[in-house]
């Protein structure tokens, strides 16, 4: 594998194939835990760990699993790593664990994780599968931090817990409706950028 293709592999998750803003996958935690940038970062890293580990294990055992029980076996592998994250966070990061709550066990039904296991890790060798996990994880974390940051900035005039502006902020962005609205506008921004890029290509 050339170093160039490694780089393309790694960056695809951030822009071209961003799991959240472009592929629209795993939106439940994206909306549910992003009231602050810190929460977004924590959730993103937890999901990244699960993505990388399950991608590695699945690419290793792919030849041992008969196709009919492929999906259930993958789900068990993923669920195990989710439980590992759950236990480790409860022990070492109790405050964050409490904030993320229900959304940690729900990583198991995050379409990104099972989607990558099924469509990538089960068809590729260890190294590309690992890279794919890293890339998708980074893309997911990036999306969560962006959305969390925007909501925190508008909703409480602070970023990563630091007060940026005086005052209470636009409450709605901390609450449930703000999550939907902020995500809507971010996706619109990505669409708009894409349309400009295609226009530029056509002109050239």
């Amino acid at each position: 594998m050339s170093s160039r293709s490694i780089i393309t592999q790694l960056t695809k998750g951030i822009s071209r194939e961003n799991p959240v803003f472009v592929l629209l996958l795993g939106l439940c935690p994206v909306l549910g835990v992003t009231s602050t940038a810190i929460n977004g970062l924590g959730m993103g890293l937890a999901t990244t760990f699960v993505l990388i580990m399950s991608n590695i294990v699945i690419s290793l055992i792919k030849h041992l699993i008969p196709s009919k029980v492929r999906i259930p076996s993958f789900i068990v592998v993923i669920a195990s790593f989710v439980t590992v994250v759950d236990l480790l966070m409860a022990g070492y990061l109790p405050a964050l664990h409490e904030q993320l709550g229900l959304f940690i066990p729900l990583i198991v039904v995050n379409c990104i994780v099972l989607g990558r296991a099924e469509s990538f890790a089960s068809r590729n060798d260890l190294f590309p599968a690992f890279l794919d996990g890293v890339s998708m994880g980074i893309g997911f974390t990036y999306a969560l931090v962006i959305l969390g940051g925007i909501r925190e900035l508008l909703g409480s005039y602070s970023l990563f817990g630091l007060k940026i502006l005086e005052g209470d902020g636009l409450l709605v962005f901390v609450l449930a409706p703000g999550a939907f609205i902020a995500l809507g506008f971010i996706i619109a921004f990505f669409e708009w950028r894409k349309s400009i890029a295609t226009k530029a290509k056509k002109a050239a």
């Binding site: 449930a176 409706p177 703000g178 609205i181 809507g184 996706i187 619109a188 669409e191 349309s195």
Partner: peptide
């Protein structure tokens, strides 16, 4: 709608307003 807002973005904003009503 502006082209970029069509589809999912507009739907999400509408969902936000619906969620506001439920609040």
């Amino acid at each position: 709608l502006p082209t970029a807002m069509k589809g999912v973005p507009a739907a999400l904003v509408v969902a936000g307003i619906l969620s506001m009503a439920f609040m």
